[in-house]
């Protein structure tokens, strides 16, 4: 089921009300679905020889649409680094470590470059790319990161949520049992605990552009990834998608049907990626 925040100002308060609405009955992921999904993915996805296959909403939904060759191989760019740096910068601001997204993004970039210089980063990592980047590229990278961080920091009254909210942190990742070169990642920017005792939670995803017809599937795949990656917890209660460029927000109230539908999409995408023209998605 999709729900929308009440269209009143301040928007952060309306979104917060929707995000923190208590969970009614915590649902758990069906163990049969977990094992069936693992088995299907191990069977239909490209083999180990094709290298690691990292699936997320973007690769799954774009993999549905057309030949893989159109998607191109991954390279770092200011847009590609936007979310990673922006979320890390927003986290610094929300934790009170830095006064503003601008200062926090600069600090995050400096930290990554220093880590790379110390030999902590692997070749091809964001830090390694930033360390080699000319000044103009760093300016563009920072500009994107600052915009993302500002959107995230302005989205909810974080100080009011206190320790219930976690901005950033690692995305939930599920490595397929029996085929660990295949993994499913949920791209989410923040998490809000609804009931600590029962482990119920809301996930928050910032997305670019405006919501399209696949927005619901995008959010469902995030919910599925999170449920698979955290078998000790119930399903996430809801996944909020926010499109700051369009001023739109929507909440997917997660249930068994949404999870099943997302699992079907993931398997379909893995099948498609097995086709010979599809290796560009493997990054």
């Amino acid at each position: 089921m999709l729900r929308h925040p009440i269209p009143t100002l301040p928007r952060a308060a309306a979104l917060c009300d929707l995000a923190t609405e208590p969970a009614l009955i915590p649902e758990r992921l069906d163990p049969a679905l977990r094992s069936a999904l693992a088995s299907r993915l191990a069977t239909v996805a490209p083999g180990r020889g094709a290298g690691p296959l990292r699936l997320d909403s973007w690769t799954v939904l774009n993999g549905q649409r057309g030949p893989r060759a159109e998607l191109g191989a991954f390279t770092w760019s200011p847009r590609a680094a936007r979310r990673l740096l922006g979320v890390a910068a927003a986290r610094r601001v929300v934790l009170g470590q830095e006064p503003s997204p601008t200062v926090a993004a600069r600090r995050e970039v400096d930290w990554l470059i220093a880590r790379s210089a110390a030999g902590d980063g692997r070749p091809g990592s964001l830090g390694a790319w930033l360390a080699e980047a000319p000044r103009g590229v760093l300016g563009a990278v920072l500009a994107e990161a600052i915009s993302h961080a500002t959107e995230l920091v302005s989205l909810l009254p974080w100080e009011q949520l206190g320790q219930r909210a976690i901005v950033g942190g690692a995305d939930p990742v599920w490595a397929v049992p029996g085929a660990p070169w295949i993994s499913l990642r949920g791209r989410r920017d923040a998490e809000i605990s609804l009931d600590h005792e029962h482990g119920t939670r809301a996930l928050l995803c910032l997305r670019a552009g405006r919501p399209g017809s696949s927005a619901r599937h995008d959010l469902a795949i995030v919910a599925l990834s999170d449920a698979l990656a955290r078998p000790d917890r119930p399903l996430p209660t809801r996944v909020l998608g926010v499109w700051p460029s369009a001023g739109k927000a929507v909440s997917l109230e997660v249930g068994a049907e949404e999870i099943k539908g997302a699992a079907r999409l993931v398997v379909d995408a893995a099948c498609r990626l097995r086709q010979p023209d599809g290796l560009a998605l493997v990054a």
Partner: peptide
């Protein structure tokens, strides 16, 4: 001042 939350090349797309 960074407290004014300056951001650049912000894309707006209103359906």
């Amino acid at each position: 001042p960074s407290s004014w939350l300056p951001r650049t090349n912000v894309r707006l797309s209103v359906p």
